Amino acid sequence: MSHGTSATSPALSTASRTVVALFHEELADVRFPDVDAPRVSAAYATVSEAHERVDAARRVLEAALAEEAVALEALERLSQRALGYLQDRPELAARVEEGLGRPKRVEPEVSRRGRPKKSGIAQLDIVPSDAHDVGADEPIAAE
Rank of each mutant, 00 (worst) to 15 (best):
11 A>C: 11
129 S>G: 14
84 G>N: 10
124 L>C: 06
20 V>F: 05
29 D>M: 08
30 V>S: 12
15 A>M: 12
126 I>Y: 04
38 P>M: 03
23 F>G: 00
109 E>H: 13
24 H>S: 06
125 D>L: 10
109 E>S: 15
95 R>F: 06
23 F>T: 01
68 E>A: 12
77 R>T: 01
103 P>G: 11
119 S>A: 15
58 R>S: 09
16 S>L: 14
78 L>K: 12
90 P>T: 05
99 G>W: 03
75 L>H: 07
77 R>K: 05
110 V>Q: 12
34 D>G: 10
75 L>T: 04
132 H>K: 14
64 A>R: 09
34 D>S: 13
15 A>H: 12
94 A>Y: 00
107 E>V: 02
121 I>H: 04
116 P>Q: 03
99 G>Y: 02
60 V>D: 07
86 L>P: 00
4 G>T: 13
118 K>W: 04
10 P>E: 02
9 S>F: 03
80 Q>D: 11
119 S>E: 15
127 V>Q: 14
57 A>G: 02
36 D>S: 15
66 A>W: 00
66 A>Q: 04
13 S>I: 02
10 P>N: 03
30 V>K: 15
110 V>E: 14
79 S>F: 01
7 A>R: 10
25 E>V: 04
72 L>C: 08
21 A>D: 13
49 E>H: 03
130 D>Y: 10
64 A>Y: 02
97 E>N: 06
54 V>C: 08
38 P>Y: 02
55 D>Y: 04
36 D>T: 10
71 A>S: 04
105 R>C: 02
41 S>F: 04
35 V>L: 15
130 D>N: 13
65 L>E: 10
91 E>V: 04
75 L>M: 07
43 A>H: 08
10 P>K: 01
115 R>S: 08
82 A>K: 12
